[in-house]
Design a protein around this nucleic acid. Structure first.
Lengths: 195, 195
DNA sequence: CACCGGATATATCAGCCTGATATATCCGGA
DNA sequence: TCCGGATATATCAGGCTGATATATCCGGTG
């Protein structure tokens, strides 16, 4: 029945560290868990409103900037903390992640190895860039936060990212090789494969 | 702007192999690409209707079972084949996959290492089961389909699954170790934890 | 024969979520 | 003073999931 908005819990987790506005939430989430979790404004703002109705969060007493600019800073309530803890203990339900790259490759015979190869190369380049970025974050966190009591928990997600990306790169290399073997005999690349 | 229903292309790809009903499509997809792509009826039926309006697919001439039972068998049109080929060549746009397990672990300090450990163990068991299943499929496909011209393309997705799951298992082991180190060092809390 | 249960088959809906769009203010630098 | 980029909130169409409803077919059991 009622699918449960996971967004709620991302918000609760972040608000437990520090009260924030919807805008702040988005960047805090991006900065800390951005490599495996993101939230859009279109999701955050309505969700925050609902959560306020449900008393999981509440607005901090009107804190306006001098000019009178609107800024809604939310804070987590006791009920919010309870709900978060309850969710953290609940098992993750298994879910098949859609993988558009694999789907395109699966039907790849309809367009030929060159196009599939291009998809793999693009994916590889992207993964390489993500890996480089994550390694920088890794370095940074290992130095600046290694004494934070939450360090071990944060580190788990970085390791997951690193291992996952490395595995993906290995797969890309394998796939590239396999697809290259499919290409029509090397040398003269002109053969127009009329169907 | 118009996000493009990926479901359309999963349907087109499958219908290119053989005309099918919505019901058949669901099981064909489940059987062949189920480990990285699934479609729900709630998505398939309305999508098929729209695609028929757009002339990407068409109904086969009334094919009813003797009792007059309704059964709508769709077939891909020339326009459908073109649309599929065009999509297959278009680059996959990068997208951060949400990972609920990692999110729960990231906030794990709020409930403690035992609960996080349980999440990891569950995920590990699940991955182990998926891996075993995929190895069977691997065996099967390598024997029964190795001469199919599309074999190489199908095989890519199996290898992606195998490498991904193996990497995940390695991460689980790492995570388990890290979380076990966080547990209150006591040897006092009995050896075999009561589950 | 009647009945049952599981597979076949289609359809609809609430609700989550994304990506796009709109709007307005703040503030530092040219 | 004006510009542009960051800050900030809000709304919407449309994709998609998981649940629910409904009905038929068919083989096996009593």
């Amino acid at each position: 029945m009622a699918r449960e908005s996971t967004c709620r819990f991302a918000i609760l987790g972040m608000l437990c560290r520090e009260p924030m506005s919807g805008y702040d939430l988005r960047s805090a989430i991006e900065r800390s868990v951005g490599h495996f979790w993101q939230e859009s404004y279109g999701n955050l703002y309505p969700t925050l409103e609902r959560m306020a109705e449900e008393r999981l969060v509440e607005l901090e007493p009107e804190e306006r900037s001098p000019g009178g600019r609107v800024r809604k800073v939310y804070r987590v309530t006791a009920a919010g903390r309870t709900a978060l803890a309850e969710w953290l203990r609940r098992p993750v339900l298994p879910h098949v992640e859609r993988n558009e790259l694999l789907l395109k490759l699966f039907f790849g015979a309809r367009v030929g190895p060159a196009d599939s190869l291009a998809q793999v190369e693009r994916s590889r380049a992207e993964a390489e860039a993500l890996l480089a970025a994550l390694r920088l974050i890794d370095e940074d966190v290992r130095h600046s936060r290694k004494d934070d009591p939450e360090f071990a928990y944060w580190y788990l997600s970085i390791r997951a990212g690193l291992l996952g990306l490395e595995a993906h790169l290995r797969w890309c290399d394998e796939a590239r090789e396999a697809l290259e073997r499919l290409k029509p005999a090397t040398g003269s690349t002109k053969k127009r494969g009329a169907r």
